[in-house]
Amino acid sequence: MNHKFSDSNQIGVVSTFSELLNTSFLGPMNSVCWYRDLAGDFKEIVSKLQLEQNITEVYPETLLALRLSEKGHIAREVILSDLRLLTDFGASPSLNLIKNYHRDEELDFISTDVYSYHVDRSPVATDTFLCTYYGAASDILPNDQVKQKILIPQIREKLKELHEGSEAEFEAFLSEHYFDLHYQPKPGAKATNLGLGHLWKLAVDHPRQKVLPCVHRAPVENDGEYRLLLIC
């Protein structure tokens, strides 16, 4: 299969949902892409949805109530099919209309919001699935092109100044406040943009995970444009 992701050993590429589920992460490969060139007018769907807050969950019944053109109808069927596939698999997908996420501006030397490169953590064996149908798409980075922010000396020192407990409690403090989930790109790091319409599976940090979790970030939204994102 010819595609722009073929030269990355971080990414496995498949052509069906079944392959997406059944392809295991291995070595540096901690993301799998069901590569698709979707038909349909997703912009029309976004234009007819109502934003109620900065992130608004869109339910199937809301989609079904929209009056759409033929191309809009095709796009809606794609989204409903993806929601069904993931739900039947046992996941809990959420379709979100996004104006913007909350920005963490409390500390000027480290950010813990989703715009910062980070990994997902779960106490149970799971994966992150996501697909951007419209708007700006997320980025991922190979693990050898990032450094954990808490290991950067200047950041670590400032975090120690914030921490009021003993040295032994410091690592727990880093974890409790999610500082340990965030990463800094190394000089020359080359991100992969996840693009539109592809359904991705990303490795999560959990006790049974055999590979490093996938480092990713939410994009800065395009001016005046909402994102339509499926995630679970």
Rank of each mutant, 00 (worst) to 15 (best):
M1H: 05
H3Y: 02
K4A: 09
S8A: 03
S8N: 02
S15Y: 08
S18L: 09
E19A: 13
L20C: 06
L21V: 14
N22F: 15
S24H: 14
F25V: 00
R36P: 09
D37Q: 15
D41I: 08
F42D: 09
F42Y: 07
V46W: 11
S47G: 12
I55F: 13
T56A: 06
V58G: 06
E61N: 11
T62Y: 05
L63R: 00
A65H: 10
E70G: 11
E70D: 12
H73I: 10
D82Q: 00
R84H: 10
L85S: 10
L86V: 03
F89G: 13
A91S: 15
S94Y: 06
S94C: 14
L97S: 03
N100L: 13
N100I: 12
F109Y: 10
R121G: 03
P123D: 02
P123L: 04
T126I: 12
D127E: 13
D127S: 14
C131V: 00
Y134H: 10
G135C: 09
S138W: 05
D139W: 10
I140V: 08
V146A: 06
I150F: 03
P153Q: 03
P153I: 01
Q154S: 12
I155T: 01
R156D: 06
E161F: 13
E161P: 08
L162V: 06
S166Y: 02
S166T: 07
A168S: 07
Q184I: 12
T192V: 14
H198M: 13
L199P: 00
L202G: 11
V204E: 11
H206D: 12
P207D: 04
P207E: 11
P207H: 07
P207I: 04
K210D: 14
V211S: 09
L212I: 10
P213N: 09
V215R: 00
V215H: 01
P219L: 05
G224I: 12
L228D: 02
L229Q: 02
I231Q: 08
